[in-house]
C-alpha cells in the first residue's frame, strides 16, 4: 500500500473565455521512504500537480481539481479546511523555488521556523532549542547567532537551507521540493541536493522532487515520472529511464543536459514538432 497515490488527477483553470486543462488525468504513487522525481519543462503541469497535493491552488470556480489523492486511506480532495491545515506542513511540507521570496522579509529566520514548530507541535516546550537544532541540521554554522538574522542578511543557499529547516522542523512524512535548486548556482545546487539526500535518509521521509533538470535527478530519485503537456508520458526507475528513454520527449529532455567536453557547437533545444511527429508514428 503506497503512502501517497494520485489517481486520474485532472486540474483545470477556468478563465473568462476558455478552460485551460493544465493536468490531464495523471496517476502515480509514492512509497514510504522513496523519492519520486517529476520531470518536465515549464508549463508541463508539474508545479500545479505539486501544489494540488495539499490543495494549495485557487478555490473553485477558478480552479477545478478532480480525481483522487489518497494519503493514508484519506482522500485529500475531500478534506475540509481544518483537515487541510493539519495536513499541510505536518504531513506534507514544501520547499519552493525562490528561497528569497519564500521567506517573510520582516521576520527573523528563527522566528519563522519557530512559527512552524508552534503551529504543529504545541507540545514542544523549548521552541528556541528546536529552532537551533533545525538550523544545525541543515548545516548552518553558528545557529545560535544566525537564528536572529533577517532573510536579506543570508545568501541564497543559506536561505534555501532555512526553508528546508522550516519544512523539516515538524518532521513531515512527505517533502515536496518544487524546483529547490533552480534559483541557486551550480555549486550550491549540489550542496542542497546532498543535504536533502542526507536528511531524507535520517528522517525516513519520502520526497517528491519537481524539476526540469535531469542532471539532479540522477543519483537522487528512485523513480522518475516525465510530464509533458499535462500528462505523464513515461515513468519508471531512474536508471532505466535515463539509460533507455522510451518516449521521444524524454530523449529530448535528456539531450538538453549540457556535458562538459562534449564536441557540440550548439546546445540542443526541444523540437516540439519533431516530438509530435514521433509520437504519432509510435501510435
Amino acid at each position: 500500500m503506497p503512502l501517497l497515490s494520485v489517481e486520474n488527477l485532472r486540474i483545470a483553470f477556468h478563465g473568462r473565455e476558455r478552460v485551460t486543462e493544465a493536468v490531464k488525468g495523471i496517476s502515480f504513487s509514492l512509497e514510504a521512504g522513496r523519492t519520486l522525481a517529476i520531470v518536465g519543462e515549464s508549463g508541463s503541469g508539474k508545479s500545479v500537480t505539486a501544489l494540488s497535493l495539499t490543495r494549495l491552488l485557487p478555490e473553485p470556480p477558478t480552479c477545478q481539481v478532480t480525481g483522487a489523492i489518497r494519503y493514508r486511506d484519506r482522500n485529500i480532495l475531500d478534506l475540509d479546511r481544518r483537515g487541510l491545515q493539519a495536513l499541510r506542513g505536518k504531513e506534507i511540507a514544501y520547499i519552493f523555488q525562490e528561497p528569497s521570496s519564500s521567506l517573510n522579509p520582516v521576520f527573523t529566520v528563527g522566528n519563522q521556523i519557530a512559527e512552524a514548530v508552534r503551529l504543529h507541535l504545541p507540545e514542544v516546550k523549548d521552541v528556541q532549542g528546536r529552532v537551533v537544532e533545525a538550523l544545525r541540521q541543515v548545516g548552518i554554522a553558528d545557529p545560535e547567532r544566525r537564528h536572529s538574522a533577517y532573510p536579506h542578511e543570508l545568501s541564497g543557499g543559506m536561505q534555501q537551507r532555512v526553508m528546508i529547516a522550516m519544512a523539516l522542523a515538524c518532521r513531515p512524512r512527505i517533502l515536496v521540493a518544487d524546483e529547490p535548486t533552480t534559483a541557486l548556482d551550480v555549486t550550491i545546487q549540489k550542496q542542497i541536493i546532498d543535504l536533502l539526500r542526507e536528511l531524507r535518509g535520517s528522517a525516513g521521509m519520502s520526497v517528491i522532487l519537481i524539476t526540469h533538470n535531469f542532471g539532479i535527478v540522477q543519483g537522487f530519485a528512485d523513480e522518475v515520472a516525465v510530464m509533458y503537456r499535462g500528462q505523464i508520458v513515461e515513468t519508471g526507475p531512474t536508471d532505466e529511464v535515463l539509460r533507455r528513454p522510451r518516449h521521444p520527449y524524454t530523449r529530448a529532455l535528456i539531450g538538453c543536459i549540457p556535458r562538459l567536453g562534449a564536441r557540440q557547437h550548439r546546445l540542443s533545444t526541444i523540437d516540439h514538432a519533431a516530438i509530435a511527429r514521433e509520437m504519432a508514428a509510435q501510435e
Binding site: Q85, A93, S102, H120, M166, A167
Partner: peptide
C-alpha cells in the same frame, strides 16, 4: 501573490 504567503499556507497556517 508573494511566495512567502504560499509558503505559510503550505505550512498549514489559517
Amino acid at each position: 501573490r508573494r511566495q512567502f504567503v504560499l509558503a505559510a499556507e503550505s505550512m498549514g497556517q489559517s
